[in-house]
């Protein structure tokens, strides 16, 4: 059962740890640049970028008259535009996330909340996209720590997707989000990555990568999902689709199950290594603040 009370989901200790994490993040970022980041777009900052010939329609106020006096040619003086980073936090809301104790979905929401807090504390814009819960409005990119409490309530009320006959395809969810033309920035996908199959998960990652976002993935699973459980005859039922399977769990079956899970996880790891996608594979037993600290130290999750 997922938690909907924000006070229960994000308790005071968790919030207190977020503040210290934000300070850590600030130190890490200041080692490279300040909070302001240069964009590839030109704008109205005070930092000179280059000259460009004046063409019709340009703002004549930007003509460099000193250069005209020297070169007898109208040129425009361009400056580097300063803009804030957009961090898109993709929260997997598929029914498979409603599993375990605590639920994977609760853990994912705590991680998203922590990442959002760090983002807002660094004067960047944070957006939350509930993948799979199409009827739940996404959290538009916003900045300022004053929005954080609203974000927590938003996350607390975020539902998981309803059961459906066919398993939800991760690739389709990613495609839909990309179709909404989000501003390019950093994408952090918090999910269990249990797709329709392995190819579905990898294709979803491909789509996010092809959209020229900087991609990072946090895979959250429940420890019980890596084992087939006690021996016996069972009718296993998919929580997402309600589809049953009658199986016998014995020694051989358990070993085969573990091999499959490990192979799946290894495929995800291999993909991310190959494409330089930051990846953290964790489970619900790991405290969310510890995981966030790991993400800050590991790299790929901070820009």
């Amino acid at each position: 059962m997922i938690e909907t009370n924000p006070d229960q989901l994000f308790d005071a200790a968790f919030l207190a740890q977020l503040e210290s994490l934000s300070l850590l993040a600030r130190r890490i970022v200041s080692g490279k640049m300040r909070a302001e980041r240069r964009s590839s777009r030109f704008g109205s900052s005070i930092e000179f970028a280059e000259y460009r010939p004046f063409i019709s329609g340009d703002d004549w106020r930007h003509i460099d008259w000193n250069a005209f006096a020297r070169w007898r040619q109208l040129v425009l003086k361009l400056f580097v535009e300063e803009e804030d980073l957009h961090v898109h936090l993709l929260l997997d809301c598929s029914a498979s996330m409603d599993w375990g104790e605590p639920a994977k979905f609760d853990q994912a929401r705590r991680i998203v909340a922590g990442l959002a807090y760090i983002t807002l504390a660094n004067l960047d814009r944070a957006a939350v996209m509930p993948l799979g819960a199409e009827r739940y409005e996404p959290w538009r990119p916003s900045r300022g720590k004053h929005r954080f409490l609203q974000l927590l309530r938003y996350l607390a009320q975020c539902p998981v997707a309803a059961r459906r006959p066919e398993p939800r395809r991760l690739e389709e969810a990613a495609r839909r989000w990309i179709a909404s033309q989000p501003r390019r920035g950093m994408v952090i996908w918090v999910s269990d990555l249990w797709g329709a199959d392995l190819e579905d998960a990898l294709h979803a990652l491909d789509r996010l990568r092809y959209a020229r976002h900087e991609l990072a993935v946090i895979q959250v699973i429940d420890p019980t999902e890596t084992d087939a459980g006690e021996r016996g005859e069972y009718e296993v039922v998919d929580e997402e689709t309600g589809a049953p399977r009658k199986v016998i769990v014995d020694h051989r079956t358990r070993a085969e199950y573990r091999e499959r899970v490990e192979a799946y996880q290894e495929s995800i790891r291999s993909y991310c290594r190959r494409h330089q996608v930051a990846l953290i594979q964790t489970n619900t037993r790991v405290a969310a603040p510890d995981l966030l600290m790991q993400s800050l130290l590991q790299g790929g999750f901070v820009k």
Binding site: S96, W99, G100, K104, P167, D192, W194, G195, D197, D222, E225, G229, G232, E233, Y234, E235, V236, V237, D238, E239, E240, T241, A243, R245, K246, Y257, R260, V261, Y264
Partner: peptide, 11 residues
Amino acid sequence: LQRKPVSTLLF
């Protein structure tokens, strides 16, 4: 048969 819910039938 004992009913056993699982998060996914993937495995």
